[in-house]
C-alpha cells in the first residue's frame, strides 16, 4: 500500500502530504489559508441570523394570527425559497456593481483593516443569513406557540408575573432549546466550508470557495480534505450542542 502510494505520487511528495492533482499544492495548507475568510463569514452571518431569527420568531409568535405575523410568515417563506446563488448575484449586481455602495466581492483580513473587513463582508453575511432567518423564525414561532400553552406558563401567569416576564423567563427559555440544536449544526456546516455558493458568488477565498474550485476541476484531494475538515466541525459542534443542552435542560443531566 505504502509502496503503491509512493509509486503513484513519486518522489515529488516525500512527506506523504495530500496534494492537489492540478496545482500540486498542499491541501491542508490551502484549507488553512481559507479559514480566516470562512470563519469571518460564518461568525458574522450567524450573529445576524441568530439575532434576527429570534427577533422575527418572537414578534410573529406574540402577534400570532395578526397582520405582522402573516407578513413575517410570508417573508420567511420567501427567504427560505430564494436560492443563495440567485440572491447573491442579484444583490451583488444591484448593490455593488450598478450602484457601488458596497465593495464587489473579495476578502480583507480582519487584522489588516477591521473596517474594510466588515464593509466587505456585509453583503455576504446578509445573503447567507436570509435563508436561516426565515427558517429559524418559523421554527421559533411554532416552538413559542407550543410552549405558551404549557401548564407551567399558566402557573407563571397565576403567580402574578407580567406578560413580558412570562415570555422571557418561562416561554422563551423553553422554546429556545430546540433552536440550539439547529444552530449548532448549521453553524458547523457553514464553518466546515458548507457556504460554497455564498463564497463562490462573493469571491471570498475561503474553504467553501476552495472546494468549489476543486469541484470545477475534478480535483479529488481538496474535496477529500474539505469533507474531512467539515466533518470534524460537525462532530465538534454536535458535542458542544449536547453539553449546552445539559446546561439548558436539567432533566438530561447525569445524576
Amino acid at each position: 500500500m505504502e509502496k503503491a502510494w509512493h509509486g503513484l505520487v513519486g518522489d515529488s511528495n516525500p512527506d506523504n502530504k495530500l496534494l492537489s492533482y492540478t496545482t500540486q499544492q498542499d491541501v491542508v495548507q490551502q484549507i488553512k489559508q481559507g479559514i480566516p475568510a470562512t470563519f469571518s463569514l460564518t461568525i458574522g452571518a450567524s450573529v445576524i441570523w441568530l439575532f434576527f431569527g429570534i427577533l422575527v420568531g418572537v414578534i410573529a409568535a406574540v402577534t400570532a394570527g395578526r397582520l405582522s405575523d402573516r407578513a413575517i410568515t410570508i417573508l420567511a417563506l420567501v427567504g427560505i425559497s430564494m436560492p443563495v446563488f440567485w440572491l447573491g448575484i442579484v444583490t451583488r449586481y444591484f448593490l455593488a456593481e450598478k450602484n457601488t455602495w458596497f465593495p464587489d466581492g473579495e476578502y480583507v483580513g480582519l487584522t489588516a483593516n477591521p473596517v474594510q473587513w466588515a464593509y466587505h463582508l456585509i453583503l455576504p453575511w446578509t445573503v447567507l443569513a436570509v435563508l436561516y432567518i426565515g427558517f429559524y423564525g418559523r421554527v421559533l414561532r411554532n416552538n413559542i406557540l407550543d410552549t405558551i400553552n404549557e401548564d407551567f406558563v399558566r402557573t407563571a401567569r397565576a403567580k402574578g408575573l407580567s406578560r413580558r416576564e412570562v415570555l422571557t423567563k418561562h416561554v422563551l427559555r423553553n422554546s429556545l432549546i430546540p433552536v440550539v440544536t439547529l444552530f449548532g449544526l448549521d453553524f458547523a456546516g457553514v464553518l466546515g466550508g458548507g457556504a460554497i455558493l455564498t463564497e463562490k458568488v462573493f469571491d471570498l477565498h475561503g474553504v467553501g470557495w476552495y472546494a468549489a474550485d476543486a469541484l470545477d476541476k475534478f480535483d479529488l484531494p481538496p474535496i477529500m480534505g474539505v469533507t474531512l475538515y467539515g466533518a470534524g466541525f460537525i462532530v465538534l459542534l454536535s458535542v458542544l450542542v449536547d453539553l449546552f443542552y445539559a446546561y439548558l435542560d436539567p432533566r438530561i443531566r447525569p445524576t
Partner: peptide, 23 residues
C-alpha cells in the same frame, strides 16, 4: 390584575407534573 394574581388569590392546578417549569 397582575397584583391580585398570586398575592391575593393563589391557584393550584390539576397536573403537578407539567405545572412547574422543568428548567
Amino acid at each position: 390584575m397582575q397584583q391580585y394574581r398570586g398575592a391575593e388569590i393563589g391557584m393550584i392546578f390539576q397536573d403537578p407534573m407539567t405545572s412547574l417549569n422543568p428548567v
